[in-house]
Deep mutational scan, measured.
Amino acid sequence: HNLTITQGKLFFHYNPKLCLSEIHKMEEVSGTKGRQERNDIALKTNGDQASCENELLKFSYIRTSFDKILLRWEPYWPPDFRDLLGFMLFYKEAPYQNVTEFDGQDACGSNSWTVVDIDPPLRSNDPKSQNHPGWLMRGLKPWTQYAIFVKTLVTFSDERRTYGAKSDIIYVQTDATNPSVPLDPISVSNSSSQIILKWKPPSDPNGNITHYLVFWERQAEDSELFELDYCLKGLKLPSRTWSPPFESEDSQKHNQSEYEDSAGECCSCPKTDSQILKELEESSFRKTFEDYLHNVVFVPRKTSSGTGAEDPRPSRKRRSLGDVGNVTVAVPTVAAFPNTSSTSVPTSPEEHRPFEKVVNKESLVISGLRHFTGYRIELQACNQDTPEERCSVAAYVSARTMPEAKADDIVGPVTHEIFENNVVHLMWQEPKEPNGLIVLYEVSYRRYGDEELHLCVSRKHFALERGCRLRGLSPGNYSVRIRATSLAGNGSWTEPTYFYVTDYLDVPSNIA
């Protein structure tokens, strides 16, 4: 807008934040220059609390790290170098490059900038070799853009010569660093050979998330399962459950009422301010606690030095998902009996873990797994792929695949051998790939016309006998059925096997 004052003059007093240069501009645009008398524009009460600059400061050096910015700028000295009290560095987070010096300023003089007072450097006698002032900004957020400017702080001049310097606002972004852990990993099994893994992005990506790394490792069953005799009275049979499938998407929606109208769909109840505040506090606490764990609990591995020492970490090797089922080394339970199943799973520490690289999504279907087997899954978020990966501390989750139908069934015939004193040795093959492992066998036998009897055969007993022995049988026709019990439950009964026990007292003698 054009402003013209045809008559009258300007009068400025007691404006401590208004620089004289701005008042002189007002004289020019209003056409009143030359009308004012000496005392109409006070030299001592206008701009006496402001830094009124008329020179431009330029930054000469900028260096960044993930949490620091090192700045240096060209030296500046007023005509009387004693008038320079120091520099004021202003900075704040700036997602967009549209910041002005006066953003967030209120009537009390406060604003949204963080201000650092910096002492002037030592003055050199040689004007050509003056030290460049600077400042190291610490405690910054990774991968965050900051708006920065600097200006001088000078003393009051009796001659009211307006001098000083100020830089333009520059924008500097800190470097990326390792992201925080992925949030809320959930693993479920939808079949006997697959596990579905879902997660949420890290709360602090500290860069642009480029991919996720998912490692999985087959877990050995508890050692007590191999040692305890679950045929003993009072000892509860062990059981394991597989990871249940995901709930429906509708039930997972946030901010939804727990109660549904019987007449149909209901609208979600909005969260109160107290609920939102509580969630923010919980989120802040979780982030602080995660940072504490990362800094205190997890110790970084030592990389190899120039002395030739090897990095103890196993090298990563990509495998196809079809090879995942046989990740671990199978060892027989008892070496003397080769027909026992290889369900003991000690994992070799030198073995390469299978892994998958996930790009542009937060889910993965891990296939080719062994049925009813526990897996430990390790999830890392990465925001750099080359020249070397920059990934987060791992988040861990466990899951067990679903049982395989008929995996616990005894394959092959049940054979028998009759000894003296009416002892019958029953023999059968253990299931080759049971659900988890076989903890015991149930032997059901009966003599024709009598009630059915049951015998429990422990895992250890089966390994020693290759089956079991029935003792003290009365003469007669017998039928026997056997079924295995694994961590997933009972298998199917075998087809009945028949044998006849004679009275050993009636056996004919070869003595003449």
Rank of each mutant, 00 (worst) to 15 (best):
D204P: 03
N206K: 07
G207M: 13
G207R: 03
G207C: 01
N208H: 05
I209D: 11
I209K: 15
H211T: 05
Y212I: 10
L213T: 15
F215M: 08
F215D: 10
E217D: 13
R218K: 08
R218F: 03
Q219C: 04
E221T: 05
D222R: 10
E224V: 12
D229W: 04
G234P: 06
L235Y: 07
L237C: 14
L237M: 09
S239F: 06
R240C: 14
W242L: 11
S243R: 11
P245C: 10
S251Q: 14
Q252L: 13
Q252Y: 08
Q256Y: 13
Q256S: 06
Q256G: 00
S257A: 14
E258S: 11
E260G: 03
E260Y: 07
D261R: 15
A263L: 11
G264Q: 02
G264L: 14
S268L: 11
S268N: 14
C269S: 04
C269Q: 04
P270R: 11
K271H: 06
K271I: 10
T272F: 05
T272Y: 12
D273S: 11
Q275S: 07
Q275I: 11
I276F: 08
L277V: 12
E279A: 06
S284E: 05
S284T: 12
R286P: 06
R286G: 03
K287D: 09
F289G: 04
Y292A: 08
H294L: 08
N295A: 10
V297D: 10
V297W: 10
V297G: 12
R301C: 11
R301T: 14
T303Q: 10
T303H: 07
S304K: 15
S305W: 08
G306C: 11
A309K: 13
A309V: 13
P314L: 06
P314Q: 04
K317N: 08
R318I: 10
S320C: 09
L321A: 12
G322K: 06
G322V: 05
G322P: 13
G322M: 15
D323T: 14
A330R: 02
A330H: 14
T333S: 05
A335D: 14
P338C: 09
T340M: 14
T340K: 13
S344T: 12
V345Q: 14
T347L: 13
E350R: 15
H352L: 07
R353I: 15
F355L: 10
E356S: 07
K357F: 14
K357M: 12
K357R: 08
V358W: 09
N360R: 13
N360D: 03
S363L: 08
I366F: 13
L369M: 09
R370I: 14
H371E: 06
F372T: 02
T373I: 08
Y375M: 06
R376S: 06
A381G: 05
N383F: 05
D385N: 07
D385A: 13
P387Q: 11
P387I: 11
E388A: 07
E388V: 10
R390E: 02
C391L: 01
S392V: 02
Y396R: 08
A399N: 04
R400H: 14
R400L: 04
R400N: 05
T401P: 03
M402C: 15
M402I: 11
A405T: 13
I410L: 10
I410A: 10
I410P: 04
G412M: 14
G412F: 09
G412S: 14
H416S: 12
E417A: 13
E420V: 05
E420Q: 10
V423D: 15
V423T: 14
L426D: 00
M427G: 14
M427N: 01
Q429F: 12
P431L: 02
N435W: 00
G436A: 13
L437P: 04
L437K: 09
V439A: 13
L440Y: 13
L440K: 05
S444Q: 11
R447N: 06
Y448G: 00
Y448P: 13
E452K: 07
E452T: 05
C456Q: 02
C456N: 01
V457C: 13
S458L: 08
R459S: 10
A463Y: 06
G467Q: 04
G467R: 07
C468G: 02
R469P: 03
R469W: 09
L470I: 12
L470E: 00
R471T: 09
G472S: 08
L473M: 09
L473S: 01
S474D: 07
P475H: 09
G476E: 01
N477Y: 09
Y478L: 00
S479G: 03
R481V: 09
R481I: 05
R481A: 12
R481P: 00
A484T: 10
A484M: 07
S486I: 00
L487S: 14
L487G: 02
L487T: 07
G489D: 03
G489C: 02
G489R: 10
E495L: 04
Y498E: 10
Y498M: 11
F499C: 03
Y500V: 12
Y500A: 12
V501D: 02
T502K: 07
D503T: 06
D503N: 13
Y504S: 13
L505S: 09
L505F: 12
L505D: 09
V507Q: 15
